[in-house]
Write a protein that binds this DNA or RNA. Sequence first.
DNA 1: GGTGTCCGTCTACGGTGTAGATCTACGTTC
DNA 2: GAACGTAGATCTACACCGTAGACGGACACC
Lengths: 208, 208
Amino acid sequence: MTAALRLVDAEGLEALTRRRLGEELGRDAMALYRHAPDREALLDGIVELVLEELDAEADEQDWQSQLRRGARSFRRLALAHPNVVPVLVTRPLLMPLGRRPAGTLRPLETLLRLLTASGFDPSTALHCYRLYVGFLYGHVINELQATAVEPDETDDLLRLGLHRLPAREFPLLRSVAGELAGYDGEAELEMGLDVLLSGFEQRLRGGG
Amino acid sequence: MTAALRLVDAEGLEALTRRRLGEELGRDAMALYRHAPDREALLDGIVELVLEELDAEADEQDWQSQLRRGARSFRRLALAHPNVVPVLVTRPLLMPLGRRPAGTLRPLETLLRLLTASGFDPSTALHCYRLYVGFLYGHVINELQATAVEPDETDDLLRLGLHRLPAREFPLLRSVAGELAGYDGEAELEMGLDVLLSGFEQRLRGGG
DNA sequence: GGTGTCCGTCTACGGTGTAGATCTACGTTC
DNA sequence: GAACGTAGATCTACACCGTAGACGGACACC
């Protein structure tokens, strides 16, 4: 399983094939069948493995600090395994909640405990959890977005390939090329957290 | 291309194969090659086609109402084509911005115009755009998440398959089963928009 | 020693994307 | 009207994929 993750990290998702993985392990491709009945199961295993790196243990800090810490940890993990992100983010769509590996459900339980212990009632805690992970998914997708098409080029417009867009139709998009090139994922995560957490707090104080 | 979308809508993503699509069109599988050089290109085409349904034209309303309208439109479109969502959300990760079909870039340009026309400077407009679409991606992933494992069952805990989780380890998750079952995507979208837009407004008033 | 149970291996099948050659039909040009 | 160029459709073939089912060996236990 860790070998599968290594393979995906090194060569991308489409390199994760039974024969290729078997070769990597010095075993026959069919041997893996004993451990993972499906290709789906392989993907699930990888996701679970990656999610174990998530630092979501409760500590002494207030809930806002803990959510921030979790978010940074998630971002770090996504940056460490960019090739896994597509399936990480897509997995919930294909696998019913009740069948998901326990490892992927644990962060949910942990956050529910944190929020309810901090005064949220279970219902809004769930809403906040959803908003929170939805935001994290969205952020990671944004940050890992492929932008450069000609990495060697020095001019931003050319490097991003935006020069091919008709100037008449996309004036603003072309004008923010520099901004796009200088994207700072960490800052953007914090900005999003500011918005989100202040919204949560307002809701906690009885706003909703 | 519209046939490809119809096929994916009806039978899921994995049904989208050259031979299958050719059969659907009464043509040979290889004929499609003239129109789409890649399977990737097919997926891109579908995404572009779906995104054309997005209602993001400028109108007379203030920017907040317009963002709300766009968000509702995006949600509606995702619900109409649930099978497309995985690739819709994942596409930016695999395709550099400069190579994306113009149709998928137009909403970005439109929103940049809306925001800058409303007083945002280009840099924060871009930040807000990213937060906004990130939020939308996250929301539809949440809403389209597969939950039911035993749809016929009437008891929530059993229907979601949560009864198999150890009660010791997942007490809270099990306790919100009813809440999970009664998920209201529209309400959650509006709640998220409340949080997001008030955050944007604060930033517009010079808060950031 | 017998036996059952893992675990790994082999062979085989259907399905997939795609390359390359070939065939077909139609608009253009003489 | 005839010849031709070309775009589009089709055929054949290849490598690769996931997976089913039969087979073989190692090992623990009775």
